[in-house]
């Protein structure tokens, strides 16, 4: 695929493959940002959905296989690795979550591995899979689902729903309201309290989603910028190669860290929601 300039290259790499209804009533893939905007809310990012579901299924398939094979004998190879992850998650949950809830650990495991796998797509070269897809006639393809705010907000909103659910369940509707309304100032300043605590509450899912999205988006952007250097002649290309390697190695840390942060904060938020005494 040829690009008119680097701006177009970057824009192309940051555009999702969107399926939705065109203004004229026909259904199909959007070509360009304008068409995406015209489709409105009821359209779907096919690439994000495809890769996130694919990676999620891969994760569940591997772990389900390990779960079936799990026995008390000494584990080997992949089994050992899976069990190591399970123990790591279990330790994290035990460390941060004070109550007893059978949902928390599987939730944390799903979040950690799924986000890690979605982030990991960032390490694949930015042009290979989209280039291949272009040959097959797919105009746009963003292979890193976590650089799509829809994906990160989808996760964080589910977590937020759980936070609200457990807040109401453990403290009661009144207790939850009291927590929002009677802190940190005395009762007569209730409106101020509500605003403050409301912002704190809303900030949880927003910060969760934006932190992950921002990190991944920025990382992807830098990969794209480095990839641009390859078209800048020999010297720039070689320099870009080193940069690419360095950034990729550093990024291994970032993708793991982001997955871990998302998981830990989810556990902590749910712990706060489940605590009855404030």
């Amino acid at each position: 695929m040829a690009y008119a300039n680097s701006g177009e290259y970057i824009k192309h790499h940051l555009t999702n493959l969107v399926y939705g209804q065109h203004p004229d009533g026909s259904w199909g893939f959007a070509h360009g940002a304008d068409e995406i905007k015209e489709m409105g809310f009821w359209s779907i990012n096919v690439d994000s959905m495809f890769f996130s579901i694919g990676l999620g299924v891969l994760f569940l398939w591997i772990f389900r296989k390990a779960a079936k094979k799990a026995s008390t004998d000494a584990p080997t190879g992949l089994q050992n690795f899976i069990e190591m992850i399970i123990e790591f998650i279990d330790d994290s949950v035990r460390g941060s979550f004070s109550g007893k809830n059978p949902l928390i650990a599987p939730l944390a495991l799903t979040i950690f591995i799924w986000i890690f796998l979605m982030n990991f797509m960032d390490l694949l070269a930015v042009d290979h899979i989209p280039g291949l897809a272009a040959l097959l006639g797919i105009p746009y393809l963003k292979i890193v689902p976590s650089t799509d705010p829809n994906v990160t907000f989808g996760l964080s909103l589910a977590v937020f729903a759980l936070v609200l659910y457990y807040s109401v369940k453990m403290k009661g509707a009144g207790g939850f309201f009291a927590e929002l309304a009677f802190h940190p100032f005395p009762k007569f300043m209730m409106p101020i309290n509500l605003v403050l605590e409301g912002v704190t509450l809303i900030a949880k899912p927003v910060s969760l989603a934006l932190r992950l999205f921002g990190n991944m988006y920025a990382g992807e952007m830098i990969f794209i910028l480095i990839a641009l250097m390859y078209s800048g002649g020999w010297a720039m290309g070689i320099f870009g190669g080193f940069l690419h390697l360095g950034w990729a190695i550093f990024h291994i840390l970032i993708i793991t860290l982001q997955a871990f942060i998302f998981m830990t904060l989810t556990i902590v938020y749910l712990d706060m929601a489940s605590q009855t005494d404030h």
Partner: peptide, 24 residues
């Protein structure tokens, strides 16, 4: 934002459910 948001939430819930039931 578009319907991907809802799709992701649903997918996530299904994955967590599966994990909670058959993996963990």
């Amino acid at each position: 934002f578009n319907a991907t948001l809802i799709g992701q939430t649903v997918t996530f819930i299904v994955f967590v459910w599966f994990c909670m039931k058959y993996v963990w």
